[in-house]
Simulated assay, not measured.
Amino acid sequence: MNSIKLQIPSLVENIRIVESFIDNAKDKYEWDDDIYGNIMIAVTEAVNNAIKHGNRSDKSKMVHLQLDLAENKIQFQVEDEGKGFNYVSLPDPTAPENLEKPGGRGIFLMKHLCDEVSFSKEGRAVSLTFYFN
């Protein structure tokens, strides 16, 4: 398995670094455009959540990103240095009472773009898995 790691301070503008990281991996590993689009949206959403919600935009706290490449899958691990959260009882963003709310769609979006999404470390880490056809 091939592994690449990236660590960024918790500043929203550092999402650009993550986008470049994903672009470089796409070129290096020749990902299809469809999987690339899903990866870009899901991973930047996870990093954004880690910066804003996990580390509360505290630039002294880091967001850790790891890409693991296997023969049939790509897996990203995004971890923050925050307190974690209860990922089991998330409100459904498609429920009528939540449709007007500005937030709460990130994890929902990730679950639709990835083949597998799993949380660990009390919600401080999320694993996003994409399988190749």
Rank of each mutant, 00 (worst) to 15 (best):
Q7P: 08
Q7K: 13
P9Q: 14
P9R: 13
S10M: 12
S10T: 10
V12C: 11
R16M: 09
R16I: 08
I17G: 01
V18H: 00
V18M: 05
E19H: 08
F21V: 07
I22R: 01
D23H: 12
D23T: 05
D23K: 15
K26S: 10
D27H: 09
D27S: 11
D27W: 07
K28Y: 09
K28D: 06
Y29C: 00
Y29V: 00
W31C: 01
W31S: 01
D33H: 05
D34C: 00
Y36Q: 02
Y36V: 01
I41G: 01
A42L: 01
V43Y: 01
T44F: 00
T44S: 09
T44W: 00
T44K: 03
E45G: 03
N48I: 00
N49F: 00
N49W: 00
N49K: 04
A50C: 03
A50M: 03
I51H: 05
K52Q: 14
G54V: 00
N55K: 09
R56S: 04
R56T: 00
S57L: 08
S60K: 10
S60R: 10
S60L: 04
K61H: 10
V63G: 03
H64V: 02
Q66V: 11
Q66A: 14
Q66C: 12
L67Q: 13
L67M: 15
D68E: 15
D68F: 08
D68N: 15
L69D: 11
L69W: 13
L69T: 14
L69F: 14
L69I: 15
E71R: 14
E71T: 15
E71A: 13
N72W: 02
N72I: 05
K73F: 12
F76H: 13
V78Q: 10
E79P: 05
E81W: 02
E81Q: 14
E81M: 06
G82D: 04
K83H: 12
K83A: 15
N86H: 12
Y87P: 03
V88R: 15
V88I: 13
V88T: 11
V88W: 13
S89G: 14
S89W: 13
L90F: 11
P91D: 06
P91H: 07
D92C: 07
P93N: 11
P93L: 06
T94E: 14
T94F: 12
T94P: 03
T94R: 11
A95E: 14
P96R: 02
E97H: 06
E97F: 05
N98D: 04
N98E: 09
K101V: 08
K101C: 04
G104M: 03
L109M: 15
M110L: 10
M110P: 05
K111F: 04
K111Y: 10
H112F: 06
H112A: 07
H112P: 03
L113Q: 07
C114N: 12
D115G: 10
E116M: 08
V117G: 06
S120P: 07
S120E: 08
K121A: 04
E122M: 04
G123H: 02
R124Q: 10
